[in-house]
Simulated assay, not measured.
Amino acid sequence: MHCALWFKLVCSSGCLVVLALEAVFWDVDGTLADTEMDGHRPAFNAAFAEEGLPWIWDVPLYEQLLLIAGGRQRMAVYADQLGTPLDNAQLDRLRALKQKHYRQRCQEGAIALRPGVERLIEAFSEAGCSQWIVTSSGRSSVESLLIGLFGSSQHPFDGLITADDVRSAKPDPEPYLKALTISGCNPSSVLAIEDSQAGLEAATAAGLPCLLTPSPWEHELLARLDGEVPPAAAALLHLGETDLPARQLSGPPCPGGVVTLEYVNGLVQSSR
Rank of each mutant, 00 (worst) to 15 (best):
L120C: 07
A47F: 11
E63D: 14
L21K: 06
K100P: 00
V229F: 04
L91T: 03
G256Y: 03
A163H: 01
S136D: 03
A163L: 03
G14I: 01
A79D: 05
F157H: 04
P252F: 09
A20C: 13
D92G: 10
K170S: 08
C129S: 08
L191C: 06
G257Q: 02
Q64T: 14
I111L: 10
A232K: 02
C254G: 12
K100D: 13
E228N: 12
G257E: 03
R41P: 09
G39V: 08
A205I: 05
A47Q: 00
D172K: 06
V166K: 09
S130R: 15
P175G: 06
V59N: 06
C210T: 15
I68W: 11
G30D: 07
D38P: 00
P60F: 05
A23R: 02
A205T: 09
L5S: 15
S168E: 14
C11R: 14
G71P: 04
T213W: 07
R103K: 09
P231K: 13
N88P: 00
R105W: 08
V117A: 14
L120E: 06
L82R: 14
P187N: 07
A198N: 15
V268S: 05
L145E: 01
D27R: 07
P214R: 02
C185N: 09
G52R: 11
D92E: 15
